[in-house]
Write a protein that binds this DNA or RNA. Sequence first.
RNA 1: CGCGGAGUAGCUCAAUGGCAGCAGCACCCGGCCGAUAAUCGGGCGACGGAGGUUCGAUUCCUCCCUCCGCGACCA
Length: 991
Amino acid sequence: MTTETPLELKKTVNLPKTNFAQKANLAQAEPARLKRWSELNLYQLIRESRRGRDKFILHDGPPYANADIHLGTALNKIVKDFVVKSRTMLGYDAPYVPGYDCHGLPIELFVDKKLGAKKANMPPVSVRRACREHATEALKRQTRDFQRLGILGLWENPYLTMSNQYEAETARLFGRFVERGYVYKGARPVYWCVYDQTALAEAEVEYREHTSPSVYVKFPLASDPSEIDPALAGRKVFFLIWTTTPWTLPANLAIAVNPNFEYAAIENGGEVYVVAGELVETVASKCGLDAPQVVARFPGAKLDRLECRHAWLERKSLVILGEHVTLGGEADAETELDVKDARDKSATSKAGTGCVHTAPGHGHDDFVIGKQYGLDIYCPVDHAGRFTAEVEHFAGERVFEANAKIVEFLKERGALLFSENYNHRYPHCWRCKNPVIFRATPQWFISLDARAAEPVVEQDEDGRDLANFTDNETDAPVSLRAGALREVEQSVEWIPAWGEDRMRNMLKGRPDWCVSRQRVWGVPIPAFYCAGCDEAIADASVIKHVADIFERETSDAWYAREAQDLLPAGFACPKCGATAFTKETDILDVWFDSGSSCVAVLKHYDELQFPADVYLEGGDQYRGWFNSSLMVGLAAHDRAPYRTVLTHGWVVDGQGKAMHKSAGNSVSPNDVIKQSGAEIIRLWCASSDYHEDMRCSDEILQRVSDAYRKMRNTARFALGNLDGFDPARDTVGTSELLELDRWALAELDDVIAKVRKAYEEYEFHSVFHELYNFCTVTLSARYFDIIKDRLYTAAPRSHARRSAQTALHRIADALARLLAPVLVFTADEIWENLPRAEGDAEKQFASVHVAEFPTPAGLRDAELTARWDNLFTTRDVVLGKLEEARVAKLIGSSLEARVVFSLPVDGEMLPLLRSYASDLRYLFIVSQVELRESTEPHDKNSVLKIERAEGEKCERCWSYSTRVGESARYPTACERCVEALGEIEREGGAS
RNA sequence: CGCGGAGUAGCUCAAUGGCAGCAGCACCCGGCCGAUAAUCGGGCGACGGAGGUUCGAUUCCUCCCUCCGCGACCA
C-alpha cells in the first residue's frame, strides 16, 4: 500500500531505541537489582536449575570476622564468585557456602580493650559472650558488604567457626588427632610477662629501648680438639659465645654454628678460641686479645655434634648446626627476643662470635633447632621469672636481677672474656610496660613425624583406595609430614604451579604444630588433668562425649560446667583410678578451627562434598589455611581436602607498594561502590592477573571505568538496533546471512571458544581482555561502524537489516552470558533488554545467572576469515588515506569521499576487491569506490587516491550520489534510499 | 636474612631465541554531530640494571636493584 503523501525522510531512518540506559548509574541501579534478586531468591533458583548436574565445590576460606572488609577481602570473594558463577554457567552444580572465622586473638583483644579493667573480674563465659557478640556483629556487616558486591551464595546460612555444630566438630577432629596418636604434650617457649605472670601474644608485645649486659663467654671443648684440626691437638680449646641475656645461660644446652661459615681457632694467652672466621678481628678487639693468632681454619659443618662443657655447670653443651646463625651479631639467635632489631639492620655495631648460645627453653630459633637435635626444652625459670631450685648458685633469683650476678660470677670463674652494656630494642609487655622473657611452657602439639595409628581403610569419593595411604615400601602408616608431602606432590594441582614448591618447602622445614593457646576465645582443648596423679588426659572417647555437649550448648559449656559434668559418668583416671579432675584451660589454635572446615562444613552441608574441587585464597594461606586444612584432611580422611589450590596475589597501590590505612594509599571498596559501583571493583578484579599482586589506584580505577563504559555502550548499540526484532520471526538462517554478518558471527564463535577456555582455566583477566578487545576492535570500531548505515537506512524488515540484527542478537546474547560472572549487574541488565521470542526457552530464565555460556555455532570459516582479514587490512590503508584527505581539508566526513584504486591486473587484490565491489563503499564508509586496472609499474602512491565524492548528498543516508533528484517523490534522496522508501511504503511504515 | 613471587609504553594485558602486538585505554591532533557526557580516524609511546650462553636474547643462565607475600598465638 502506498501512502498518500511522501514520508518524512528523517522519520524513516531506523535509529537505535532501547531502555538500556547509556548512563549506568551503578550506585543506584545495583541495590535495586540486588533487591530483585533477593525477591527472586536467585541463588536458590540457580541451585534448582542445576539439580543433578556434576558438582563443583569451591570451599570458602573463612575471612576473619573482626573488621570491615577491605579491598583484599573484596578481591578474594569476588574472584571466588567468578569461579562459582563461571562454573555454574559451564553447566555445573556449583553451590557456594560462605563462612566466617570467628574465634581468635584479634577479637579477644578488641573485647579486652572495650572491657578494660572489668575483664579481670569477669568469668570466661562472660568474656566469651562479648567476643561472640562482637564477631556476630562484624560478620553481619561483612555479609552485607559481600552481598553488595554482587556475590551470590548461601548468605542466610553461612558456616561459623563458633557455631555449636562447628565447635563440636572441631573438638571431635582434635579427638581424631588424639586417636591416631599425633597429639602429645610438650614445652615451647612463648613470650611471658613475669609481672603479669601471663603468656603474651606477639601482638601484645611492643619493642622499646633497653639496656642489657652483653657478654662473651667461654665454653670449654670436651671433645678431642684434634677432631677439628690436627693443629689443635692437646690445646685448651673454647667455643666463644655471645649473649645479651646472661640469665638464659643456666639453660644453655647447645652452641649453634652455621655449617656454611668458615670458623677459625685463634690463640691467645695459651687458650684457643673458636669463632667465625670473619669475626676474628672484631672479637679480638672487643675482648682485648693482645696477639690473636689464627692457628686453624675449618668449615662450621665440621663441628657438628662436638661436645663442650657448660661454662660453669657440670653439663654438656652440644655443638649443633643451624642456618639461622648469622654474622650480623646484633640479634643472633641467642634468643628470639631482639630479633626485631636484627631486621632493622641499621648501623648497629657488630657483636657476636658466630657461635650462638642456645637455650631451647628460652628462644624460638633455639627451640626449633633444639627439637631437631632432640634437646630438652629446658626452662628452669618459673612463672614469676625466678630461677627454680635446680639452678645452682642462683635458685630463687629473679632473672633480670640475676643478670649482674651472673656476669660477676662468670668473671670470678674466668669464663668471661668481656662484658659491656648494650642498648637495643627489646620486647616489653604492652600492658605493664615491663620487659618480657621467652619462657618454655607446657603446650599441646600435633606431631608431624609420628606415624599414624589405625590406618584408615576406605575408599574416598574419587575411588582412591585409602589403604594405599602408607609407605609403599614398608606398608606402614606414614606421618603427617610424609602424607602431606605426598598429597602436595602427587594429588593436588597448584595454580600457579610454584605453589607446589612453596608448600613442599614449608612442610619440610616446619616444626610440630603447637595447637594450644593460653586464651579464652576459642574452642577449649577438651583435655583433663587427674587431681590425683596430675596425668594429662586427652582421650578420644572422652572427647567425643565432650563434643556432644558442645553440639548442644556450644563450647561455652566447657566454662559453664564443672569437670565432672563434662566427663562421661564414672570416668576414672586410667593411671591412678582417681575420679576428680580439673579442666584444661588452653584453647585450640584458630588455624585448627579453620582447618577443620573441610570436615565441619564439607561433610555437614548436603550440597557440599569432601574433598573440595577448589580452595582459593591469598598466598599467605600456604602457611595458614591450606596447611591446617591439609593436616585435618589427612587426620580425618587420609587425603588432601582439595583437588586444586588457587592463589591470588596481594592488593598493592599504584606504585606496587603494600596498602596501609596509615600510609593513606589504601582504596576502600565501600568508597568505590559509592562512587562508581561494585561493578567497577569486579571489573578491576578481572582486568588484572590475580595470580600476582594486583595494583589499584585512582588512575587504574578510572581506566577500568572507561573500559566499563565502552563495553556498556557496545551492548547498548546492539540492543538499540534490535528494537522491533523478534528472534523467532526475524532471525535469518545462517546460509542466508550477508557475508559480513557471517564474518562477525565467526569472530563471535572464536571469542566464545577463547572465553570459555579462559573461564575453565581460571584466567579471568584473559576473559576480560578477550571480551574488551572484541567490544572495542571487532565490534565498535569495525562491525558496528560498518553496519550502522545498513541498520539505519535499509527498510526495517529488509533482509539486509534482518541479517545484521540476527548477528546483533546473537552477539548481545553471548555478550550477556560471557560477561555475567564478572559484570553481574550489567550482564543481567543486558539480558533483560534483549528481545525474546514468545515461548523462547530462555525466557524462563529470570536472570542471566541461571543461563549457561553460549557454545560456538560452528561458523568459523578459515577461508572467509582470511578473505576478510585481507579486506580489513585494505580498509586500514583506506582509513589512513582518508585521514590525509581530511587533514588536507578535502573532506570532512568520510562519506564525502570517493576512493579510487589503481591496481595491477595480474595482482591478487584486484580480483578480491572486484568480488566485493558493491560492498566496498560500506566497508570503507565512503560514498563511492572505483576500481581501476593499472598497467603502470607498481607505485605505492598511485594505488589509492581519495577524491571528492560525485553528486549530491542524500538527505536520508548522507551518502553522495549523482542520482539524487531522480525521484520526483523523494527529490532529496539517493537511488538506494528511494528503493528503501518504496519498500517502507509498501510495508506500511516503520518496523 | 631465609622461602616463594614479580618487574614489557603513563595504565591494564599479549607474543616471541631473530626488526616486541590488528593491542586497548590514557595523552595530543582531527572528523562526525543519527551509539552524542556517545562514536570514528590519525599520531604518540615500552622489554628494571650488569654480565654470560648464542650468529642473534625481551625470551635461556648468573649476579645486582626495586617491589610483594610468608617466616608472628594478627589474617
